[in-house]
Amino acid sequence: MQADNRSSMILQTTREDHLIAWLTALAITIHLAESALPSPLPGVKPGLANIITIAVLVRFGWRVAAWVGVLRVLVGSLVLGTFLSPTFFLSFGGAVASIAILGLASLVPGRPFGPLGYSVLSALAHMAAQFGVAYYFFIPHAALLHLLPVLMTAAVIFGIVSGTIVAAMFRSSEKRC
């Protein structure tokens, strides 16, 4: 039993922390809902939770998006029970790579990218990193490389879908304001 001598410990939270918590909760919800969908190929799924990461990036900047992206994978894996399993490392590698490329892309002067560009970039980075982890750590067999074109095609398609959804979200929220 824990003693009660630390009766009041108040964690100072900022507005940004609350924002991150809210948005991450939203992303986790989508992540969980999506994990119930059957997938034709391991590693291929729509990645709809990425919608939140992209929307957050466009709306609140890269810092918040990075938090949301990493926390989503971490908490999602804890809830699904895949934490520290190969699935988790694939997911985590993908998330880190996609956040890294989003960081680079948002640094480009003139801000040339919209939701669609960010989303496709992030999907490609996610898939490439996931494939790299799978190839170098789990299945280092040349035959796996034959899957790469299909996986990357899927990444582009799902990237376009999520990006379009984000763009539509922003369009409709602008109309309402």
Partner: peptide
């Protein structure tokens, strides 16, 4: 759609076609 988006789509198309040819 921003100009960068178009560029990303083009590059993605090039990358994917290259992968099909290569593998």
């Amino acid at each position: 759609m921003r100009p960068g988006d178009l560029l990303v789509l083009l590059l993605a198309a090039v990358l994917v076609s290259y992968l099909y040819l290569a593998f």
